[in-house]
Simulated scan of single mutants.
Amino acid sequence: MPAVILAALILSTAQSPTGAPAMPAERPAARWIAAPRPEMPVAALRGNIGSGTVVLNCEILDTGEVAGCSIVSEAPAGYRLGRAAITAMPAAHAEPDRPGRYEVVLNFIVQ
């Protein structure tokens, strides 16, 4: 059963003095050259969840590569959507003109 990712949005975040991501900054969001394309996990297909959302925190390097992603949230929990999103990120590539930390929102839906 094929899964389709409806949207992959990147919102910029500023760096706090402690190094933890802060609230969105007043700068343009990064743009995808090659958007992440995670596959719907088998657990999600078997669970018949239909859709889900994952928020990642990732570093966009000055080369456009995506690195250092961590899961901020995933819903519904327990279906490995976050792991699927992280696994897909090495193939993603952003415009290299806006390096920094970003929140990446991935919406999963089964069609």
Results as ranks from 00 to 15, higher is better:
S12R: 08
S12Y: 02
T13E: 12
T13I: 12
A14Q: 15
A14W: 06
A14M: 13
Q15V: 15
S16N: 13
S16H: 05
S16A: 15
S16Y: 02
S16K: 12
P17D: 08
P17S: 09
P17R: 04
P17V: 08
P17Y: 05
P17G: 02
T18F: 11
T18W: 10
G19M: 09
G19R: 00
G19V: 07
G19A: 12
G19S: 11
G19H: 10
G19Y: 03
A20N: 10
A20G: 02
A20V: 08
A20R: 08
A20K: 02
P21L: 02
P21Y: 07
P21I: 01
A22C: 05
A22V: 00
A22P: 00
A22M: 07
M23I: 11
M23W: 11
P24W: 06
P24E: 04
A25P: 00
A25G: 12
A25M: 07
E26P: 01
E26M: 08
R27Q: 14
R27T: 12
R27C: 10
R27I: 15
R27V: 15
P28F: 04
P28L: 09
A29H: 07
A29P: 10
A29E: 11
A29D: 09
A30T: 07
A30V: 10
W32K: 04
W32Q: 05
W32L: 09
W32S: 02
A34Y: 12
A34P: 00
A35F: 00
P36G: 05
P36D: 03
P36Q: 00
P36H: 02
P36C: 03
R37V: 11
R37P: 01
R37G: 09
P38D: 06
P38A: 03
P38M: 06
P38E: 02
P38Q: 06
E39R: 11
M40K: 01
M40H: 00
P41Q: 08
V42N: 12
V42K: 13
V42Y: 12
V42P: 03
V42R: 14
A43Q: 13
A44M: 12
A44P: 04
L45M: 13
L45N: 08
R46V: 08
R46E: 15
G47K: 02
G47I: 08
G47H: 05
G47Q: 05
